[in-house]
Structure formats: structure tokens, C-alpha cells
């Protein structure tokens, strides 16, 4: 998975990713459900956990975010960032940051699940901020799929594309592909606004709205490509390329064959 994560911005990535995603549909059905349960366990906010989190924070995070997460010139304060934010950044491997880039890249997480939970709890304890959803909040199976589609096209597709494939922002920044994001990650992203993503608060995006959006994104991931190979769901650009490279290419082949001398 590591190589996939680092290659994900390459030109062939769209094809590879779509192929992978679609061929793993069955597995993902199961994976999504179980992942939900594992990640959203509400562990007791024990002092031990926070203490472990603080230790890890001092080791790995404080050089940029400062002791106590108060922020430095290099990185923002994490007071009030919330548990959900820390969990999202760490579990998608965006943090700890490895290099200065236009924005943090998705990678394999550096920490174990327990460590991530501990650090998240610690960050959550620094000041009031968005916390992780409960397991019942993440139950999206009964949500309204059509409403999810409308909310997605109104609030999400402008950056993440109609099929969740992602898209470009200004100056090299981008909205990532979200087709294989877990329900928890989608939820966290909406309430914390990682990187340049705006925040969709609980008040402006109710739990049921969030569940509908998660259901729609999950559907995007599983929907067949009815008309055949989808060309990366990139719209008319890949269609135009196909016409010139494949269709005209084949027909030039036929034309050369028609004119070729026979022995």
C-alpha cells in the first residue's frame, strides 16, 4: 500500500486506482463496515492514554507545534484543533509532515492505531474542539442517498469532482480523491476542514446530512461503470484523448491496410 500512496498523483494513477477500487468492490463492502466499528470505539478518556499521547506528542510533534501544542512559526497552534482533527491527520498519514510541499500528502500512517488514539486524545484535551463521532453517528446505511447526491453536488463536487476523483486547486494544491475514504475520515474531514478544505460544522451540516453524504460517497465507490471503462471519470478530456489515440488510431490502421499492396 505504501507504493500506491506515493504513486497516487502519477498520470496512470487514475486508471490504476479505478481498476483497484472497482475490482475490490466486494472486499470494500466488508472492509468499510468493520473499519467503522474498529475506529469509532469510544475508549475511556483515561489519564493514562492522555499521558502516553503527551509523551508521543513531545517526541514527534512538538518540534513544530510547540510544547503543549501552542504553535510555533512553522506550524499552527493545536489548542482547540480537537481530537477529530488530530485523528484524521495522523490516520491518513498527513502528519507528521515529512517535507514542505504545497500541502500534506496522504501516506501510510507512521503511528499505530493505539498511538494515534492516544495522541488524538491528548490534542483533544488541549482545548475544546471537534471530537470523533460515535459509532451510531457513523451508521449511514439508512440515510437518504438522493439527498446525499444533492448535498454532494452542492457542497463537495466543485473540488472533489462529480465522481469523487478529486481536482486541482490554485498553485499546486489539490482536493484529494475521496472514493476510498472511510466514513470516519469523511466525517472528520467535514467537521475539521483539513488543509484548505473549509469546515462544515454540525450546525450547517446535520448528522443526517453527513450520513447522506457518506452514503453517496460510498455509493460512488461501489457504483458500476455502466457504459464500460470510465477513463478515470475525468470527463471530456479523457474522451477526447480516446478519440484521437484509440479511435482514429484504429481507423488509420484500417486505412493503411486498405491501401497496402498485396503479394
Amino acid at each position: 500500500m505504501k507504493s500506491l500512496a506515493t504513486q497516487r498523483r502519477k498520470p496512470v494513477a487514475a486508471l490504476v486506482l479505478v481498476v483497484l477500487v472497482l475490482s475490490l468492490i466486494g472486499a470494500l463492502y466488508a472492509a468499510v463496515g468493520s473499519a467503522t466499528k474498529v475506529q469509532a470505539v469510544d475508549a475511556p478518556n483515561s489519564a493514562e492514554q492522555i499521558a502516553l499521547g503527551e509523551k508521543l506528542f513531545v517526541q514527534s510533534c512538538s518540534s513544530c507545534h510547540g510544547i503543549g501544542g501552542v504553535g510555533t512559526d512553522e506550524a499552527p497552534s493545536l489548542v482547540g484543533a480537537g481530537e477529530a482533527s488530530a485523528d484524521f491527520q495522523l490516520s491518513t498519514g498527513r502528519m507528521p509532515l515529512t517535507a514542505e510541499q504545497a500541502q500534506a500528502q496522504e501516506r501510510t500512517p507512521v503511528f499505530s492505531d493505539e498511538e494515534i488514539m492516544a495522541i488524538s486524545k491528548y490534542v483533544g484535551s488541549l482545548g475544546a474542539g471537534p471530537s470523533n463521532p460515535t459509532a451510531s453517528q457513523l451508521e449511514y446505511e439508512n440515510a437518504d442517498l438522493a439527498l446525499g447526491g444533492e448535498l454532494f453536488r452542492t457542497n463537495c463536487s466543485q473540488c472533489h469532482n462529480f465522481a469523487g476523483e478529486g481536482g486541482a486547486l490554485s498553485n499546486g494544491k489539490y482536493a484529494p480523491n475521496i472514493r476510498n475514504a472511510s466514513p470516519l475520515q469523511i466525517w472528520q474531514a467535514m467537521i475539521t476542514g483539513p488543509e484548505n478544505m473549509p469546515v462544515f460544522s454540525d450546525q450547517t451540516m446535520s448528522d443526517s446530512d453527513k450520513q447522506a453524504i457518506i452514503k453517496f460517497v460510498n455509493h460512488l465507490d461501489n457504483e458500476p461503470s455502466f457504459g464500460g471503462w470510465d477513463g478515470g471519470s475525468l470527463g471530456p478530456v479523457s474522451e477526447g484523448l480516446t478519440v484521437f489515440l484509440l479511435v482514429i488510431g484504429l481507423l488509420i490502421g484500417a486505412a493503411v491496410w486498405i491501401g497496402a499492396k498485396v503479394r
Binding site: 481498476v19 472497482l22 458500476p224 461503470s225 455502466f226 457504459g227 464500460g228 471503462w229
Partner: peptide
């Protein structure tokens, strides 16, 4: 009905 094509996705069987 759909049909799963290795590496290329799941397509409408009839259309294909």
C-alpha cells in the same frame, strides 16, 4: 445486470 471485467471495472452486461 452487470459484468465484472478484470482491471477495467464493472460494466453493464447488456451494453457491452
Amino acid at each position: 445486470e452487470t459484468v465484472s471485467i478484470p482491471f477495467l471495472g464493472t460494466w453493464s452486461k447488456m451494453n457491452t
